[in-house]
């Protein structure tokens, strides 16, 4: 049975607590999960994905009434006793409780998505007297990442879009920003106006002739910028149009020149 447990709690402010959520797969290899936690007398504030085993978030932690839900994917799977899923930050009072709901799912890495049996538990938050020395420092930018440009006739009306994902090893990704540019600027990127986005992002320039600048910002404000170069300079249909136009002009000038030549001859 897969077990979810909470350990190494840290009290960071007078009424704030960091609760790491772990999984013990009991020898099974799991590669996807959805965890649903019922919160009793406790307020969810934020999460940290430092040291998390999750490779791709499917749904980052969000509240559905008093149930906290989050889900993720681990290509290749995870087998172990202490897999950290995430660290949740709560405001709480003594006597607060977190309950793992039976609707939570952990799926095996067997190619079929078989559900593993899960142990349903309830966790009473212990009384934590003094503050813990929990210092989160982050001076490193997020990891390098690739920007994929693609289109799918079944999505976004067949328009080109980009998708991307990265991780921050210390504090976690706070948000992404995007800017499309005709030229790469010589001055610093900071002076440019970026738009807050979530992937996938539909490109404004559907001709794919712009530079697409994606900025990943972590929770301490450190930035990683990746740039997607223009995928095309001139479109094929534009080349054909140009050639046709060129041929027309050539024919026109030839006719005009011959007409003038004949006129001179007659004279």
């Amino acid at each position: 049975m897969v077990k979810v447990f909470f350990d190494n709690l840290k009290k960071v402010e007078n009424n704030k607590i960091v609760v790491p959520v772990y999984v013990d797969t009991e020898g099974k290899n799991i590669n996807a999960f959805e965890l649903r936690l019922k919160l009793d007398d406790i307020i969810f504030r934020d999460y940290l994905d430092k040291d998390s085993i999750i490779v791709f978030w499917l749904e980052k932690p969000y509240l559905d009434k008093n149930v906290l839900v989050f889900s993720g994917i681990i290509p290749g799977g995870y087998t172990g006793k202490n897999g950290l899923l995430t660290k949740l930050i709560f405001e709480y009072r003594d006597g607060a409780k977190i309950e793992v709901l039976p609707s939570s799912q952990f799926l095996l890495a067997d190619g079929l998505g078989t559900k593993a049996k899960i142990e349903v538990t309830s966790f009473n938050l212990p009384y934590l007297g003094k503050l813990d020395n929990f210092v989160l420092e982050d001076r490193h930018p997020p990891e390098r990442f690739k920007i994929y440009v693609t289109r799918d006739k079944n999505m976004f009306g067949g328009r080109y879009y980009i998708t991307f994902e990265t991780k921050d090893k210390q504090s976690g990704i706070a948000y992404y920003q995007v800017r499309e540019l005709t030229f790469l600027p010589y001055s610093k990127m900071e002076n440019f106006h970026f738009e807050n986005v979530k992937p996938p992002y539909v490109l404004k320039d559907q001709t794919l002739r712009s530079y697409v600048v994606v900025k990943a910002v972590d929770k301490f404000g450190n930035e990683r910028i990746e740039i997607l170069k223009p995928q095309r300079k001139i479109l094929v249909d534009e080349i054909i149009l140009l050639l046709l136009f060129g041929i027309l002009i050539f024919i026109f000038f030839n006719l005009f020149y011959n007409k003038r030549k004949n006129l001179f001859k007659r004279k």
């Binding site: 590669n31 996807a32 999960f33 959805e34 499917l58 889900s71 994917i73 681990i74 290509p75 290749g76 799977g77 799912q105 799926l107 095996l108 890495a109 067997d110 190619g111 079929l112 998505g113």
Partner: peptide
Amino acid sequence: NLIDFSIMAYWYTG
């Protein structure tokens, strides 16, 4: 749903 993502994670190539 989650089962499909598990299947994709199994066949993942990067």
